[in-house]
């Protein structure tokens, strides 16, 4: 037998393969372990047990007396109890669960005194609220971004100057300045103007979230225009000639013939663009939108658990982007079968 073995043969040897896999885990363990060890060296105290309440917590309900008076009667009402407190302004009834109060008939209560305290329902924590806002903003911006991108992309490849030049100007202006600056302009310049105009004409103002969504979708749209253009240009010109020569107009040819084919080339770069969108939404905290990053910052100011919350924040972003990337890969497989 030949004594020389190729690298492929070496890796197909079961022992070598297992050693290699073990090596991977060893590297991961070493990296995470040394970071963890280093934090202990600088006396950081990890308190992971404090973290769950940032996802959801049980709200404590406290009942205060509205007026000074005497507890006239305590009577059962279903599985709860009615506390009837008589005072200057007449009787008032408070319905509270069993064992949530420490009063007897005849006791006196002062105005503003706590008469009962019991656990209420589950409430979403800061991180959950932030996660939901980030998801909502990213989703809406993705939809608007796709629409802008497709319309802009079709305009970009058309021969009509008004369409083509508008699309080029849009793309060049938006790609030429930082997103953070655009968010500031959207909120502090356009937002202020629009809200003042609305107020002057007797309408309600628009929530900052919508200015954030506008900035993000216009920014993403500009990149999608270029992706769509590249996709359209990757289709053989004979396709549009065949479509047009059968009497279809430009938009029919685009919608029914070119775009369905271009989708295959468009999908992979589009995925990257929308993953960026999710990550870029973290900038919206600057205009006081409580998305995941801002929620994390708020959580840290109350808990001081800096390390845990930032790491968690990163993991939550990773979960969102990874799910999206899996979904797009699934779409790619589906369009590839035809």
């Amino acid at each position: 037998m030949d004594t020389k073995t190729s690298n492929i043969q070496r890796l197909s040897n079961p022992t070598a393969r297992w050693l290699s896999i073990a090596g991977f885990f060893a590297v991961m363990f070493l990296v995470i372990g040394s970071v963890y060890y280093a934090t202990y060296t600088v006396d950081y105290i990890w308190r992971w047990y404090k973290v769950p309440k940032y996802f959801a917590y049980v709200e404590t309900v406290k009942i205060y007396s509205d007026s000074m008076g005497e507890v006239k009667e305590i009577k059962p009402n279903g599985d709860k109890f009615d506390l009837v407190i008589g005072g200057g302004q007449g009787d008032k009834t408070y319905t509270v669960p069993e064992d949530s109060y420490n009063l007897n008939e005849g006791d006196l209560v002062n105005e503003g005194e706590r008469i009962a305290e019991y656990p209420g329902g589950w409430k979403p924590g800061l991180l959950t609220i932030g996660l939901w806002t980030t998801l909502k903003i990213s989703f809406i911006s993705t939809i608007i971004g796709i629409l802008l991108g497709i319309i802009g992309g079709v305009a970009r490849v058309s021969d009509t100057p008004v369409l083509k030049w508008t699309a080029i100007t849009y793309v060049e202006i938006i790609r030429g300045s930082p997103l953070l600056v655009q968010i500031m302009i959207a909120y502090f310049v356009l937002g202020t103007t629009i809200n003042k105009l609305l107020a002057m004409n007797g309408f309600g103002i628009i929530n900052p979230e919508w200015y954030g969504i506008a900035a993000l979708s216009i920014f993403t749209g500009a990149y999608v225009v270029e992706i769509v253009r590249a996709g359209i240009e990757s289709i053989h010109p004979g396709q549009i000639e065949a479509a047009r020569s059968s009497g279809m107009n430009y938009f029919q040819s685009m919608y029914h013939i070119i775009l369905p084919q271009a989708l295959k080339t468009i999908l992979p770069p589009l995925a990257g663009q929308f993953i960026n969108l999710i990550k870029d939404s973290s900038l919206l905290g600057m205009i006081s939108i409580r998305e995941l990053t801002k929620a994390t910052r708020e959580g840290i100011t109350t808990s001081l658990q800096t390390f845990e919350l930032w790491i968690l924040c990163a993991i939550l972003y990773l979960l969102m982007t990874f799910t999206l990337s899996m979904f797009i890969q699934y779409l790619e497989r589906r369009t590839a079968t035809k």
Binding site: H236, G238, Q239, E241, A242, I257, Q261
Partner: peptide, 8 residues
């Protein structure tokens, strides 16, 4: 057309 140009 020479290259058929069917819609794939």
């Amino acid at each position: 057309f020479q290259s058929f140009n069917l819609f794939p």
